[in-house]
Simulated scan of single mutants.
Amino acid sequence: MPPHHEEEEDKPCRACSDFKTWAKLQNKGSKTAPTKPPPPQSKECPLDKEELGKSTWGFLHSMASYFPDKPTKLQSENMSRFFNIFAQFYPCEPCSLDFLDDIQKNPPKTKSRDELAKWLCERHNTVNVKLGKPLFDCSKIHERWRDGWKDGSCD
C-alpha cells in the first residue's frame, strides 16, 4: 500500500484530477474566481488524471502484448512483481489503492502473452465499468496494441 501523508491530503493532486477540477482546487482557498485553463501551449505540462490514465494503459497494454508467448519462470515472476510494485507507486492514490485491491482479488496471470493481455484487459474493463466507459472487446487486444487492426488502418 502506498504511504499516506496527512499533510499532503489537502493539497490538490493533478494526477488525481482532470485539469478543470485541479484548477478549481488550486483556487479553492483564494477569493478570486476560478480561471479557465490557459490556451494550449507548446510547453509540456504535468499530466492530469485522464492523460496519465490513457498513457499508462497504453504502456501496460503494449507491454503485455509484447510479453513473451512462452515466458520463463523468472519472466513470469518478474511481471507479477512489476504489477504489484507498479500499483503501490501509481501517482494517483485513489487509483493506486483501487488497483491494489483489484489485483489482490485477481492476481496477475503471467504464464503466456495471451493470458497476461487478457488479464490486463479485464482489469482495464473493471475500471471502465466504474467510470461508465464502454468495455473493450478483449479478443481484439493484440490487434489494438501490437499487430494493428485487420482493416489495415494502422499500416
Rank of each mutant, 00 (worst) to 15 (best):
M1P: 09
P2I: 11
P2K: 13
H5M: 12
H5F: 13
E8F: 08
D10L: 10
K11Y: 09
P12T: 04
C13H: 03
A15T: 07
A15P: 02
A15H: 07
C16G: 07
C16H: 05
S17G: 06
D18T: 06
D18P: 01
D18F: 04
D18A: 03
T21V: 10
K24A: 05
L25N: 07
L25K: 15
L25G: 06
L25C: 09
Q26I: 15
Q26V: 15
Q26F: 09
N27I: 00
K28L: 14
T32F: 13
T32Q: 09
T32E: 15
T32K: 15
A33C: 05
A33D: 15
T35D: 07
P38Y: 09
P39Y: 03
P39L: 08
P40W: 12
P40I: 10
P40H: 09
Q41L: 13
Q41K: 09
S42Q: 10
K43D: 04
E44W: 11
E44T: 11
C45F: 09
C45D: 05
P46T: 02
L47N: 05
L47K: 15
K49H: 14
K49P: 00
E50P: 01
L52F: 08
L52T: 05
G53N: 12
K54L: 13
T56I: 03
W57R: 07
H61N: 13
S62E: 07
A64H: 08
S65R: 10
F67P: 04
F67H: 09
P68Q: 05
P68M: 05
D69S: 12
T72M: 04
L74W: 10
L74P: 00
L74I: 14
Q75G: 00
E77G: 03
N78C: 12
N78M: 15
S80V: 06
S80R: 10
F82S: 06
F82M: 09
F83T: 01
N84Y: 07
F86S: 03
A87S: 15
A87L: 03
Q88R: 08
F89Y: 14
F89S: 11
P91I: 00
C92S: 05
E93K: 12
E93S: 13
P94I: 08
C95W: 11
S96F: 09
S96Q: 13
L97I: 13
D98H: 08
D98P: 01
D98N: 14
L100M: 12
L100K: 05
L100W: 03
I103E: 00
Q104I: 02
K105E: 14
P108T: 02
K109Q: 07
K109C: 03
K111R: 06
K111V: 04
S112R: 11
R113G: 01
R113S: 04
R113D: 01
R113N: 12
D114C: 02
A117Q: 01
A117M: 00
W119C: 02
W119G: 01
L120M: 06
C121N: 01
H124M: 08
T126E: 06
T126A: 11
V127R: 11
V127Y: 12
N128M: 02
L131H: 06
G132N: 03
K133H: 08
P134I: 04
P134Y: 03
P134A: 07
P134C: 01
P134M: 05
S139H: 09
I141A: 11
I141L: 03
E143K: 07
E143T: 06
R144Q: 14
D147N: 14
D147P: 03
W149E: 04
K150V: 02
G152I: 04
D155S: 14
